[in-house]
Amino acid sequence: MNTDALSSAIASQLVMLFAALMLVLQLLLVAQQMLLVAVRLYALQSLMLTAIAGVVAYYYNAPHVYIVAVLTLAGKVVFLPWLLNRIVRDIKIHKEVEPLLNAATSTLICLGLAVLGFIVARPFTTLERLGSNTLAIAVTLLLTGFFLMFNRRKAITQVLALLTVENGIMLAAIALTSYGMPLVVEIGIFFDVLVAVMVLGILVYRIRESFDSVDTAKLTRLKG
C-alpha cells in the first residue's frame, strides 16, 4: 500500500470515527437533563467537528477549511458554551424538570431517527470518497436535533438543539463537499448562528423576566 492510499485510509477512518463520536454525543445530549452537562456535551461535539475540519483541511491541503476549523473552535467550542454557561448560571435553572418523553423512550426514538437517517443516506454512500459516509450522521444529527427541540420545555435546551442541528449541517458541508463550501457561505452560516444564539440568549432573559420561568410551554397567553 503506498503512502497516499494509506493516508487516505487513515483520514477517512478518522473522519468516520469523529463523526460517529458526534452522533454518540448527540444521543447523550438527548438523554441528559442537567443543563450545564448538556452545554459541555455540545462543546465536545463541536470539538469533534473541529477535528473533522482539521483532518479534511490537512488531507485536501485546503487553507480555507483550516479557517473554518479555527472559527468552529473559537466560536462553538469556546465562545458559545461560555455564553450558554453564563446564561444557565444567571437564570439559576440547572435541570430540565421533565422532558415530554423520558430518557429511555427518547433515546429509543432517536435510534429510530438514526436508522431512518442511515436508510435515507444509504444510496449516496457508495461513493469512494473521503467522508462520504458522514451524510448519514449529518442527517441523523438534523433529525435528532429537531426531536430534541420539541421534546424539551426549557428555552436553553431548545437553543442547544438548534445548535446541534447546525452542527449537523456543518458536518455535511465540511465532510461531504470535497473542499468544504465556499468560505463566504461558511462564514455566513457561522455568524448567523452566533447572532441567533445571542438574540435567543437575550430572549431567554426576557422570557424569564416576564414569566418567572424559561418553560416555553407557558408562552401561550399574551401578557399585558
Binding site: 444521543l27 429511555a104 433515546t107 429509543l108
Partner: peptide
C-alpha cells in the same frame, strides 16, 4: 436508561 443507551 443506562441499559437502553447501551442497546441504542
Amino acid at each position: 436508561d443506562l441499559l437502553s443507551a447501551a442497546f441504542v
